[in-house]
Amino acid sequence: MVVLRTEPVTIGGVTLNNHLLLAAGVLGTTGASLSRVLACGAGGVVTKSIGPQPKDGHAGPCIALLDDGILNAMGLPNPSREFTGELSGLGSKPVIVSIFGGDPEEFAEVAGWFKGMAAGLELNLSCPHAEGYGASIGVNPDLVEKCTRAVSTLGMPTWVKLTPNVTDITAIGKAAERGGASAIVAVNTVKAMRISTALRRPVLGNRYGGLSGEAIFPVAVRCVYELYEACSLPIIGCGGISSADNVIEMMMAGACAVEIGSAVQKHDITVFETIKNDLYAKKGIDPAEIIGCAHG
């Protein structure tokens, strides 16, 4: 397997300790948990998604563990502006705050709370199970462009997380680029559901949810590949990454870095250290040599 040179990397205006980030919604709930993940080898961390008002989220069950992934419908639970207090002890660490809103004005409002407190922002325009938020906006190129511009004009690094649940993800990526995005993150969860044959009802309280984990890795690879050919922005690959070889494959498709989420649930936070040990070596190659190398 290809191994990489180990060194800090700057992507989309954010300097990371390595190419591995904690994905939004996984252990990003407190300053303590974010610090712990960084100490365990993550090169950067993305917080849970924070919105304009506190939300309790959907009624449970909210998570179902599958053989090859995780089905979830959390409903964007968050403490809203109170979350700013969790960042006070993180200083200059590579923390990206995931934010959501129902329109450009709400995105700008929430983004403003974190100006000067975080290394960057990640716009959640992709959650598939929160009515009025996430993918409800992220399937519309015009709204994606407007929401991105509302945040990017504040001067912070602005990453935009895209949904795979669209006919043409490149149209959404181009809209984020027009709006001034610093990078795009591909992808969030895939629309899905399961039904309990014993209970004769959906396994999730919300009925519908989003599928993450190894099952969607090929979907994420294709999305990254298509976006690399259509957009000039740096791409952070996300979806089912659980090994160093997965990271290399994502980078060959066009990703400059990756986010890891479901693998933390399966392997715990030591997955970052495990992947780091396999991915890097002092005599490894320059990552630039493989980024996008699978394109003809």
Rank of each mutant, 00 (worst) to 15 (best):
E106D: 01
F107S: 07
F107Q: 06
F107I: 00
F107M: 08
A108H: 15
V110F: 05
A111Q: 14
W113Y: 06
G116W: 14
G116T: 06
M117G: 14
A119W: 07
G120T: 15
L123G: 08
L123C: 02
N124Q: 00
C127G: 12
C127T: 09
H129P: 12
H129C: 13
H129Q: 15
G132S: 00
G132T: 06
G132F: 00
G134S: 10
G134I: 10
A135N: 03
A135I: 06
I137S: 01
G138P: 06
N140F: 09
P141D: 11
L143H: 03
L143Q: 11
K146F: 05
C147P: 13
C147D: 08
R149W: 11
A150W: 01
S152R: 07
T153V: 15
L154T: 07
P157T: 10
W159S: 02
W159I: 06
W159F: 10
K161R: 07
L162K: 00
T163R: 03
N165K: 05
T167L: 15
T167V: 14
T170E: 06
T170S: 11
A171I: 13
G173Q: 00
G173R: 04
K174N: 15
K174F: 05
A176I: 08
E177D: 05
G180V: 10
G180L: 00
S182M: 02
A183D: 03
I184V: 12
V185Q: 01
V187H: 15
N188G: 05
V190L: 15
A192T: 01
A192M: 11
A192F: 03
M193H: 01
R194C: 03
I195Y: 02
L199R: 12
G205Y: 04
G205I: 08
G205P: 13
